[in-house]
Nucleic acid binder design. Sequence first.
DNA 1: GTCTATATAGGGATAGAC
DNA 2: GTCTATCCCTATATAGAC
Lengths: 207, 207
Amino acid sequence: MKTKEKIIHTALRLFNEEGEPNVTTNHIADEMDISPGNLYYHYRSKDDIIWQIFLNYEKKIKHVLSQQNVNYTSMEDMWLYLHMVFEVIAEYRFLYRNLIQLMNRMDFLKRHFRHILALKSQTALNIMQHLAQQGAIKADEQTIASLADQIALTTTFWLNYSIAIYDDNFDEEKKLSHGIFHVMRMVAPFLTERDKEVLDDLSTQYL
Amino acid sequence: MKTKEKIIHTALRLFNEEGEPNVTTNHIADEMDISPGNLYYHYRSKDDIIWQIFLNYEKKIKHVLSQQNVNYTSMEDMWLYLHMVFEVIAEYRFLYRNLIQLMNRMDFLKRHFRHILALKSQTALNIMQHLAQQGAIKADEQTIASLADQIALTTTFWLNYSIAIYDDNFDEEKKLSHGIFHVMRMVAPFLTERDKEVLDDLSTQYL
DNA sequence: GTCTATATAGGGATAGAC
DNA sequence: GTCTATCCCTATATAGAC
């Protein structure tokens, strides 16, 4: 791996492990056994590094959100879809942990993240409406819109919530599937009896 | 106001306005027209100031959460109750904006905040169960537990969500009532027809 | 591309006079 | 209780040699 890519790679890992504010450019250089000067040859600032990482995140999350080839009519599809979303979030979790601070500092990041959030809401709404048309869920328009909103909020802040509430050494993978389960339970009351059972099966399988 | 209290007061205001990481002890002293040395005479560290502010927050939120004299059977009571919760959160919003970072830095704050979160979940559950007993809402045990969880998460991160999603100059008071409305809409699908109408009235009244 | 050395700046915190 | 002066440390970032 070239130095330039390796910086991005190492920075992302350290940001996720220690939290962005606790990781200095020197730490990153140290961890890679290169000099701070070398790091600044490749990127002009710490924020530049963060911005490049963000662009990678943006590409991945947009790719997941624009998956149109799957028909989200089955509970398995829903579970899989949520799993993909939560996986990208977990991979770039430092962005979510210090979201407000980062948006505050970097105006372009703020604008781009807002756009992604809007996209997330819209996608959730599309899926919910699709499910309603297929008869998989039973709810009026207002309830569906509310659910979509709620899903966007929950996927965005679930990680912070679980950090705040659980012990730190709580298994990372479990936090993920707990998040999926949490979102599914929001939808559960509006499912048909048959789909509720499928959901229960999936729960015991993954939790 | 004595200097000692005034420091707390000024620090809280600046933390809320600028974000805790962007406010230095010098800023606080400057804003009050006292010297940095004077500030450190009253508090031994910046974290000490934050801790004292947190203790005030803890007292208020616990007081609100332990209100047992009200019977949460009417929608008006629910609205009022949520308003009180969101008001305390708004008053100490810097705690919520930089929650993870603060918990990471201050271990006692982490433990206390966790306890408050648990209390919040429990209170939400109590109210939901009470409403179910009174026949105000219709839902099975699992749905009620899920709702309570969801309310705890939403009240905790609504502010961050609205900061992330809305324009910065969006009216503070409106963010608050939007949060209340958002939580109420989560409960709405399980209300009786009569209470749904009351909720709609309240919405047009406050939004 | 990479290194060493260093500039620059700012924040937290203390000493000692008044 | 309050001030001035200052120390210490760390972080971002640059200059210039190799």
